[in-house]
Design a protein around this nucleic acid. Structure first.
Lengths: 147, 147
DNA sequence: AAGTAATTGCAAAAGATTTGCATTTAGAGT
DNA sequence: ACTCTAAATGCAAATCTTTTGCAATTACTT
């Protein structure tokens, strides 16, 4: 019997093992969705997108927590009442969210390094900066047209 | 009888009236706390700080919502499980939050205008940007020393 | 192939935020 | 000052988001 290897799955398995996490089917499925959707997803949407193989909500929450600690996902605050998560394998980048319809557009770059550096230099209390958030909010073309 | 006018209260009353909001004692008390604490506060802390005159939680939530709509307060996401609010009368600025102890330091400036502009120019979907968030996270000196 | 610690599902709890409704109150108009 | 009305408040209950305890399952090490 010939086993056809799936490059993507291999990659996820390695990713998980490097992070000292077990490569379970559930986790692979979640990573696949995150990879495919390519944008910040809420826990609820994530759970829906998995499709057939139902995953308990608590499991997804725990997974996002461990993934975040290991740097596999990034938590994004889009001013909704709940958190969003996206794969952290991509380069640092940010988003513009439409205040009306919630549409998200990627900003595929991050020019914040000098600003972060300046903030650290001027800070009295902080010796290191480990992370930052930067999100834009606006009105998208189609929502603007609706008036 | 001589009434000693309170400049601060006068200011808050005007602020509220300009926003077409009634100047109730509750609202004045909340604004006083926000002014005094001078940093982003959670609903729970806000409620505690009011002291004597107890305010219902629902009232504070509704108040923050209307204040935000009128531009009196700004909502800040500090990666806690709940929102924080601060007076928006101050110039645009940001914060560094300690990932260990939650201490907040002000960054009293905002250099993001050119970056926001660049993002809007490059955007395909968005015609205007109305707001942005920028938060830093790090480890403060005293938490770093604890090791 | 067996053993163990990590992972999962389920149920329940805890925490954050919103809503409906009856009551009170600030501020406009008289 | 007095009246009136829409806005604001308190209370209770509902809803939504996230966390936790525990027993059963499973990936991976030896």
């Amino acid at each position: 019997m010939i086993l056809i290897k799936d490059k993507q799955i291999d990659y996820f398995v390695t990713l998980l093992h490097k992070a000292s996490l077990k490569a379970t089917p559930t986790r692979i499925a979640v990573l696949k969705v995150l990879e495919k959707e390519h944008k910040p997803l809420s826990i609820a949407i994530l759970q829906k997108r998995i499709g057939e193989q139902k995953i308990d909500t608590a499991t997804v929450y725990r997974m996002m927590q461990s993934f975040q600690e290991k740097g596999i996902v990034r938590r994004v605050d889009l001013r909704h009442t709940h958190a969003h998560y996206e794969l952290a394998t991509r380069a640092d980048h940010h988003h513009i969210t439409c205040e009306r319809c919630g549409k998200i557009e990627d900003i595929p770059w991050c020019d914040l390094a000098p600003i972060v550096k300046k903030a650290l230099c001027q800070s009295v209390t902080f010796t290191q900066i480990t992370d930052h958030t930067f999100e834009l909010f606006g009105i998208c073309r189609s929502c603007a047209d609706e008036e």
